[in-house]
């Protein structure tokens, strides 16, 4: 444990009845950095954020945010955190400006200051033109930006972003990334949950991969990519019988990585795409005909395939979690 951790958890655990949503999670985010929490639906990301933002209490374990215990000193924690959840925290009937002014007033700002802060944030988030429109008329990307702006009214030092770009198109996602980078440049510590490896790679200084409530890998994006491969190579031989030969050839070219055989194809996370021509030559020399030879960015699915040997489950864990509440 270091002096500079804005967020620290020790054995953080949450049960909803029989469901273990979070299981002894130890994490730390250094002050002024972005901690990316990467995981599929139902992995426990939202459960963790809700506890750290003092919305719910842990079943076991402890966490300190800004140096304060989230259970004992929740009131202190709330004075310097901001939360943007998966669900919209803005009032659809109110205009963008009113939504922000409302939060300012709640925080005890005099009306003039609340108005000024609202204007400032609307400009910063490129929403000035839509300031007088009700939030229900906003596009998905604009609404997320407004939601993020609403969590920033009180100038939080520590910000929780729960899947801030899920459901956004690539352009809106890129805009939001830019805003988050700006906040971090100003010294804000961010804990960001995401289902996208690319997002964690773009924004996070450190990444924790979680699955079924447990941390299954941590490290810097570079370390993690070295372990799992930043890109994913998929090779499918025309003849199923040649699968083992292909696997051996791939393994020989990438001695540090573990190829996965699944559904008649070989998948492997790779870091050095310079080896591709040599691998293609190997396959050609053996006379192996291919139906697929595809190199792409690793998705969360492939990260999980590499880390756990299985794909992410699109199960109903999230709904179970909801129901358990």
């Amino acid at each position: 444990m270091s002096q500079d951790n804005a967020i620290e958890t020790e054995g953080l655990t949450k049960h909803f009845g029989d469901l273990v949503a979070l299981d002894h999670v130890d994490l730390a985010a250094r002050t002024g950095t972005v901690l990316g929490v990467l995981g599929p639906n139902g992995a426990g990301k939202t459960t963790m954020v809700r506890m750290l933002a003092t919305l719910s209490e842990p079943t076991a374990g402890t966490a300190r945010v800004g140096g304060y215990d989230i259970v004992k000193d929740g009131a202190q924690v709330r004075t310097f955190i901001g939360l943007t959840g998966q669900f919209a925290g803005v009032d659809e009937l109110l205009t963008g400006e009113e939504n922000l002014r409302f939060i300012g007033r709640l925080l005890g700002m005099p009306t003039r200051d609340a108005k000024a802060r609202a204007r400032e944030l609307l400009a910063q988030f490129n929403l000035s033109d839509a300031a007088e429109k009700p939030a229900k008329a906003y596009s998905g990307g604009m609404r997320r930006r407004l939601d993020l702006a609403a969590s920033l009214v009180g100038r939080p030092r520590i910000l929780f972003l729960d899947e801030p770009t899920t459901g956004l198109d690539p352009r809106a996602r890129g805009e939001l990334w830019g805003l988050v980078r700006g906040l971090v440049a100003d010294g804000t510590t961010v804990l960001l949950t995401t289902q996208y490896l690319e997002e964690a790679d773009q924004l996070a200084h450190e990444i924790a991969v979680i699955d079924h409530g447990k941390v299954i890998a941590t490290g810097t994006p570079t370390q993690l990519k070295a372990k799992i491969g930043g890109q994913s190579l998929r090779i499918q031989p025309e003849e199923h019988g040649q699968l083992d030969t292909v696997r051996d050839l791939v393994a020989a070219r990438f001695p540090d990585l573990e190829p996965v055989v699944e559904a008649g194809a070989i998948t492997i996370g790779v870091n050095d795409d310079g080896i591709m021509p040599a691998l293609a030559a190997d396959l050609r020399d053996r006379g192996i005909a291919l139906t697929e030879f595809h190199l792409g960015l690793s998705s969360l699915d492939e990260v999980f395939l590499t880390l756990t040997g299985r794909r992410t489950e699109t199960d109903d864990a999230d709904e179970t979690e909801e129901a358990a509440k």
């Binding site: 002096q3 500079d4 002050t31 140096g67 004075t79 005890g108």
Partner: peptide, 26 residues
């Protein structure tokens, strides 16, 4: 073991005046 402590106003419970103002804002 000690984490970076952010200087925060020591609040245990918002005062009555603040609560009234928050209710009015709501």
């Amino acid at each position: 073991m000690t984490a970076a402590t952010i200087e925060a106003p020591v609040i245990h419970r918002p005062g009555l005046g603040a609560t009234v103002s928050q209710v009015l804002s709501m």
